[in-house]
Each structure stands twice: as C-alpha cells, then as structure tokens.
Amino acid sequence: MNTLQIDLFTGLNDADSMQDVLDVALKVIKPMGFDYCGWQSQLPLPLTRPRLASLTTVEDEVDSKISSGAYLDSPLIRHCSSTTTPLLWKGTTDDETFLQDPALMEEYYSFNHRGGWAQSVFGRVGTFSLFHADSINTFTRQDLQNSSRDMQWVAMAVLGRMNQIRERSDIKLSLREQEILRWTGDGKTVEQISSILSISASTINFHLRNAMMKLDAPNKTAAVVRAIFLGLLY
C-alpha cells in the first residue's frame, strides 16, 4: 500500500463516528486540492418528499440546502443515483456536468464550491450513498484524472466505514415489528396493515409504538427510515 492508503485506513480504523470518518478523509484529500468533503444518502421510500441524509466537513449554505432537499434533482444526485462511475467536474462555466443547469452552477460558485469529485455505492432496497469532495478552486480535467485513482480508494473506504458505523446497533426489533414497519414503508395505513395481517388496528399501533420507542423515533415514518438505515428491515 502507498502512503495515502496507509494514512487513510489507519485513520478510518480509529474513527468512531461518521464525522470522524469525514475528518480523516479531508486530511487525506487536501493535498490533492480539495477543501471540503461530505457524505449523502437517500432512501427511495414512498414518501411525499424524499430527503437526503447528509454530513459534511463544513456547515454552509450548500450543506443547508442539501439537508433541506433542495438539490435532489441536481446533476450530482442524478448521476450518483444511477451509476457508480465517478463524477468529475472542473468548476468552470463550460463544464459539461453543470451545462444543463447553469443556475445551479452559479449558485455553487456563490457559495465558494467549484471543482469537485463524487462517487456512490448502492445498498439494500435501492438505497445509495455517495462521497463527494469539493474545492474552492477550479480544476483542469487532467488534474481530476490524475487524482481519480486515489479518490476512488478514498470514496470506497469512506463509504464502507460509514456503512459500518451507521449499521452498528444493538437495537432488536421483533419479527412483527419488522413486518409492520415494512408495510408502513410501503405506504400502507394502519387499517390497511390490519387487514393484510388479519390483526386488529390496536395491535398494529401497539407494535408501532414499541418500534418507535426502540428506535427513538418521533413518528412511524422516522421509525421506518431509521430501521432501514440500521439494516433492521431487509
């Protein structure tokens, strides 16, 4: 292994939280010209407005917009939700990545996000997670290609460690709780689940309350999302 890989894996092995993982990644990628990095994950649940779970090394307007779901249809998300091929963008006005959405490129520029790199992995039930690195400067295509091999190592290692930490849980759901949360995630109401499982609505609500308490979730939708993130339903 080269020095970058040794530093990366040593740091990730010692990382105890998802924020620690990103801090390790940023130290490794800074010499390649990147100033920020982040992680995003989306669940394609049948909710009225899917959200991106996100974490970054900088709290700014871009991070706030990502968290609020403003960039769900950005070129970055469209690309990373459909392929694991890395996405590279120079941060220049002629960059093909953002030519289809020049207003978004202008907004990124105004928040001091220019050149960048991203790659995703796919998980269970259609989930995907992505790692991205951004710079306050523009890149040449050659700059990005030169760092691509190392960045793929970083992305895969970071996403793998993120999943380990995210799914690390001692929460145990009963088979009935899992079953009811799956149907809830499919958009079924309590009454519909009652009919499907041939048990009373009050029993459905009893199991939902127990699951919400175990998952520390404020409502049944949040319980479904957290249970899927923790790998408890599939």
Rank of each mutant, 00 (worst) to 15 (best):
L233H: 04
D23Q: 14
A133P: 07
R226I: 13
L12D: 09
I171G: 04
I196M: 14
S81Q: 03
P218M: 12
H79Q: 10
L159W: 07
L76D: 02
Q40Y: 13
D95N: 06
I204R: 06
I29A: 11
E179V: 00
G115L: 02
G126D: 11
E167S: 13
A155Y: 07
A222M: 13
I193Y: 10
V62C: 07
S67T: 11
A118N: 05
H207T: 00
Y71S: 04
G116P: 01
I204N: 08
V154S: 09
E61S: 10
M213E: 15
Q100R: 06
I29P: 14
I193G: 05
L45N: 05
I66E: 06
Q164H: 09
V21M: 03
F98C: 04
S148W: 00
Q164V: 09
F34S: 07
A211L: 11
D101I: 02
S64L: 08
G11D: 05
T3E: 15
S195A: 13
I171N: 05
A70V: 08
W183E: 04
R182C: 10
L208G: 03
V21F: 05
C37H: 03
R51T: 06
S17I: 02
S147V: 15
D95Q: 04
L88E: 08
D7M: 10
I180A: 08
T10M: 06
P75D: 03
A133T: 07
K27R: 15
V154M: 10
F139C: 07
T92G: 01
F34R: 07
R161S: 03
P102H: 04
V158A: 12
M32D: 05
M105S: 03
A155G: 13
S17G: 08
A157N: 08
G11R: 01
S41K: 13
L76F: 07
N112W: 01
K172F: 10
D16R: 08
L159V: 02
K65N: 11
N2V: 10
W39Q: 09
I6A: 12
T97C: 14
L45E: 07
A217D: 06
L76V: 11
D170P: 00
S198G: 06
G33V: 07
Q152C: 14
L88G: 01
K30Y: 12
V121Y: 09
F206A: 06
S148E: 15
N146R: 15
L12I: 04
R182M: 08
A118P: 01
Q145D: 13
N146M: 14
E191P: 00
D150V: 06
R176I: 10
S148F: 00
L233K: 07
L72M: 14
S129W: 02
N163A: 12
R124K: 13
V24P: 12
H79K: 08
L208K: 15
T93Q: 05
P31F: 08
V154K: 03
I204H: 09
S135R: 07
L130R: 02
L12Q: 05
A118M: 06
W153P: 00
L173H: 08
P102C: 04
D73Q: 12
L72P: 01
N112V: 00
D16M: 08
L104D: 00
M162K: 15
S17F: 02
M213N: 15
L55Y: 05
L232N: 06
M213K: 15
S148K: 13
G91L: 04
T93P: 00
D63R: 03
H113L: 01
V225G: 03
L72H: 02
T84F: 01
P218W: 06
R51F: 07
M162C: 12
T3M: 11
E177F: 04
